[in-house]
Each structure stands twice: as structure tokens, then as C-alpha cells.
Amino acid sequence: MSASSSTEMSAEPNLTPLLDVVFQLITFFMLVINFSNDNYDVRVRLPVAGTARPLDDADKAVGQDRLVLNIDRDGHLLFTGKVLTQQKAMEEIKHQASLVKLNLKAAGVKLNATNDLPTTVILRADRETEFSSLFGLITACQANGFRRFALKAMNFE
């Protein structure tokens, strides 16, 4: 009996400091993780512009309505992961505008005389996209009441 108790000696490492470090790491990743990047398509390679202003807190505000349009190098609109033809893209923009109007109506917000929508259209176009494709989408957005645009670019390569 006494022999077995002497062989059962065990060394227990103190795990508390390790747990502290792991919790700190978890806190770090929880703070820096961003689940809202779903709209950002990795197929789009943005151009570089030095004075492009980073998003400020006002732009990130919860109430700020945004419509992100990713445009690939062939000028096709990438929407919810799908590549849309020009015809489908126009229909989608019209649909999005009607959704915004519906939301505003439900919230009791009245539009101004020219029916300008408060939504910011964020254009994320590939650096190789030709202007004709981009201009077609901008014109379609303007025709549906969008006035505020943000052209995306990288601050550095």
C-alpha cells in the first residue's frame, strides 16, 4: 500500500499563466477580426492612390447605408459572389434602389424633391477595368437616384 502511494507521485505544472496568455490572444483576435468584409471580393485588384482617404468612424457608422459594387477586370459586376451580365447588373441596381426606397418609406424618411437616395455606392473596380464599363454602372446608379459615390483604391501596394 505504501509502495503504490510512493509511485503515484505526480508533477502538476501551473497552467494559470498559460491560460492568461491564451485569453489575451483570444481577446486580441476577437477585437481585430472583421466579419463585415463579406462584400469585399478578393478577385478585384484595386489600383493604388496615395491620397485615398481611409474610412473614418462616420463612414463606418451603423446607420450609414452602403451599397458595395465589385467590378472585375472585364467590367462585370460581382454581386454576392456571382458574375452578372450588364443586363442583370442594371436590374440588380434597380432592385437595390427600390429596396432602399422601401426601407426609407418604412422608416418614415421622406426623400428630397429630386429623390436623391442617401446610400453611398462604393465602387471597387479592378485596376484593369475599362472606363466604359465603370461609366455604364455609374450612369445606371445615377438614373436610379444614387448620388453619393466612393471610389476605392489601395493606400499602398
Binding site: 477580426i33 482617404r53 453619393r148 459615390f149 466612393a150 489601395m154
Partner: peptide
């Protein structure tokens, strides 16, 4: 699940018809 996003900027403008 952590994918660091590259630093993106933007040019905000009001484009009227």
C-alpha cells in the same frame, strides 16, 4: 478565420447626373 485586409482608402464624391 482571421484574414487581415489590406489598407483601403476611398475618394468620396457627389456625382450628379
Amino acid at each position: 478565420t482571421y484574414h487581415p485586409m489590406p489598407s483601403e482608402g476611398q475618394f468620396v464624391m457627389n456625382l450628379m447626373p
